[in-house]
Design a binder for these strands. Structure first.
Lengths: 216, 216
DNA sequence: GTCTATACGGAGATAGAC
DNA sequence: GTCTATCTCCGTATAGAC
């Protein structure tokens, strides 16, 4: 997570200096997120990131060895936060989970920054195999959480479902649908890709009854 | 399709000059495809495209007004070919269609160039609204073909399916799944995203029987 | 129409003052 | 640690010869 080990140390007595440094680093990560998303990894300039963060170019290179290191550090931050965030979504009841997933699709698709950065990260991964492994690990981690959660209800599902796909395959399909809906919603708009389509398709796939909302 | 109207004229008497020009143009489009996919739109250099096509930088600007014009011309070519190609896939029997779709997912995902360019086009569209409209039109055209094809069997489907999603919504979901599976297959590999997963999930969604392959 | 040479701007990264 | 100034390279696009 940290460029050097020391940054991770919280420490009360270290005080002001370290705090300022940490704040600059954080500001750079936030700015980098904005600029990398908006311009793309290649065209994004370190100068614009520095300007957005309110620091000089020189400062950037004190915190990060290169533009590339800044990008990977940013992704590292994102992914670790992401896994916690998404894991929390599926912990509730089925109804809550589906509602949360619908919300997630809409939120990500409707946020330029999220949607763009997501695609940039994928492209970077495909072009940098060593980085791709880390992204794959992240996807696998997410899939494991989802599979474990799904497994709680797996035995109660319609046998026809279990005959057609394994639980881990279902999770892959659900993840694919998630990414694809976000992609299409950005191009086609919210009318063509309504906010509840994800849950409706998932329910249809799992052969679960519709959610009447009136009940509970 | 053409930079100027004249390029479109086939004409026998025009002969050699026009043919050479057309060949150069075509070579540039092929090279552009390779380079834009591999480097990304921003970092791709006109010099590398020219070198790959075996011509000089100056020649590029005779055929295309700018790097941007080259990119959009390329996409225009791709998309018009794409709609014909995909429309042909769904014209056969259900079994043939599903097999063709599985093949398509595998082919696109396993081709760096296809998968990368696809993502680049999407990113370019999100960053250039006027271009996004054209991409949206393309997606809509594809969706219309698919919806028309689906409609032939729609009335025979399980009522539970028709109650959960409209036909056009199903097409959107199928398209989303298509894009998502390609994306995940490139990161997770063919073991995690098997080549027949697409058809199996589509069949499960439509509540169609599995394909026994032995029958006919 | 194709080439070579070049104008012009902008990028990543570093040096050295404070 | 942060800044300003700069080195150095590479990009798009154009000019002008053939």
């Amino acid at each position: 997570m940290s460029e050097r080990g020391e940054t991770a140390a919280p420490a009360a007595p270290l005080g002001r200096r370290a705090a300022t440094k940490a704040r600059t680093r954080q500001a750079l990560l936030v700015a980098a997120r904005r600029v990398f998303a908006e311009r793309g990894y290649g065209p994004a300039s370190v100068e614009e990131i520095a300007r957005t963060a309110g620091v000089s170019v020189g400062s950037v290179y004190v915190h990060f060895a290169s533009k590339e290191a800044l990008f990977t550090a940013l992704v590292e931050d994102q992914t670790s936060a992401d896994v916690h965030h998404k894991a929390a979504l599926v912990r509730g009841s089925a109804r809550e989970t589906f509602a949360a997933l619908d919300q997630l699709v809409s939120d990500v698709a409707d946020s330029r920054e999220e949607a763009l950065l997501d695609a940039e990260v994928w492209l970077y991964a495909v072009r940098h195999p060593e980085f791709a492994e880390r992204l794959a690990e992240h996807e696998v981690r997410l899939a494991r959480v989802a599979t474990a959660e799904l497994h709680r209800a797996w035995e109660d599902l319609d046998p026809a479902v279990r005959a057609a796909v394994r639980d881990d395959e279902f999770v892959v399909a659900a993840a694919a649908l998630y990414h694809g809906l976000i992609r299409l919603r950005r191009v086609l708009g919210e009318d063509a890709v309504p906010g509840d389509l994800y849950s409706r398709v998932l329910r249809l796939l799992l052969r679960l009854p519709e959610d009447d909302d009136g009940a509970e």
